[in-house]
Design a protein around this nucleic acid. Structure first.
Lengths: 224, 224
DNA sequence: CTTAAACGGATAATTTCACTTCGTTTGAGA
DNA sequence: TCTCAAACGAAGTGAAATTATCCGTTTAAG
């Protein structure tokens, strides 16, 4: 087995730094994050990125799979909670916190791997159980569906203000922005409790969030 | 005064179409919306854009001024409401509705004109009155400040899902997404009513939202 | 008809991007 | 201590995108 890893440790460290940087840059720059920016933020050369991932898309796919793992893990921990409401609330807070919404802009720009869709299904199932449990306990307003929760997480997941302060290098204000956001999240969570007037319309269809990952259709038919 | 406007009507129509298109494209493409895309969406040539605005920035500044007008008008209408809560709720819904959040990504990328900052001040003052009135009537949770409301509007103002469906040309799903969003907004509004546990931390400072418009600092010091 | 104002799209100049190539550095095993 | 494959960073490359200008054409008021 000998002679395999002259600089194995550094390689592993770089891989981790790359994924961390990609997540951050994706959150700040949106769908047009560039590989150069990601590599720079990770403090590595561009070649190190391409040594590990054959293309930008492959990096992003891997990132999605990891994020889905995180969602699944958080949902499982939520289900372990004795209090159904606390379990759901912690799930929502955690999903929002680790900027899961950052991957939203990727939808439609990369192909969905089998691994991704399997994890997507699993994550959905766990959320369904979290929500059902909260409904049974009367801890969640009865007219709020799992889809409503997913959309709420998506809506809260991105923080335009924090992302922009980040881009401007205003590190001094970011703490304030972060705790301000905690309050916004708390307001939304309070809105999920029972004893509120009925929500408008009917619960949104679950296809809304899955269809978006289909590859984009032709946009501008160009004819000569 | 004769001989002044051979094609005045068309010019006015184009101007309107340009602003409408710019708002839409800005919402969908974010800060890197291109003039070509805007002109195409408006159905006019690029030259028509540059005939009216000396630069991309000037167009965006004008757009900001118009959006601020809209905010001010909506706040004034909110104050006309007899019911303080209804007034505030309609204000929030309206601000979220006309995608005021679409201008968030512009912050820091264009210079702030005097006109803009004057309108910003006026808008802030009106929101302050709306919130104070709701507080006095006990219709708004006492621990929610005007800043919290502004941040909530900002957070709800962008809809990643709708923007993306738009980009993909999935017009069939947009209605569903829009009514789903109405529910998310309703949840957040319910979270603003009284009789909820206290919000975490203290009310965020108002400087948070004004400082972001300062021009970005130097980011990457390049030396030869 | 005349003509000034407005039009749209091809075009230029610059920038940005994904990806490659290449010479250098590193550290585990002999 | 010495070797060498694996890993590294950064300059380089061609294609695509972007802002803004130029120019021949169209329109409608007088």
């Amino acid at each position: 087995m000998a002679r395999r890893a002259p600089r194995h440790a550094e390689a592993a460290r770089n891989d981790h730094a790359l994924l961390e940087a990609a997540k951050k840059v994706l959150a700040v720059d949106g769908a047009h994050a560039s590989v150069a920016t990601i590599a720079a933020r990770a403090g590595v050369g561009i070649a190190s990125l391409y040594r590990r991932y054959r293309s930008k898309d492959e990096l992003f796919q891997h990132l999605c799979a990891l994020a889905l793992d995180q969602w699944i893990r958080v949902a499982e921990r939520g289900l372990e909670h004795d209090d159904p409401w606390e379990g759901l609330a912690h799930y929502i807070e955690a999903c929002v916190e680790f900027s899961g919404g950052a991957l939203g802009p990727l939808a439609g720009t990369i192909a969905v791997t089998d691994e991704m869709s399997a994890k997507f299904t699993r994550s959905d199932e766990l959320l369904g159980r979290l929500v059902a449990r909260a409904h049974e306990a009367g801890a969640l307003r009865p007219d709020a569906s799992a889809m409503d929760i997913s959309l709420l997480i998506e809506q809260l997941g991105k923080s335009p203000l924090i992302d922009q302060l980040d881009r401007q290098g205003r590190g001094d204000l970011i703490d304030a922005a972060r705790s301000a956001r905690k309050r916004t999240i708390a307001i939304a969570l309070d809105g999920l409790r029972p004893r509120h007037p009925r929500l408008p319309g009917t619960a949104p269809s679950p296809t809304l969030l899955s269809e978006r990952w289909e590859h984009a259709l032709a946009e501008s038919p160009k004819q000569p």
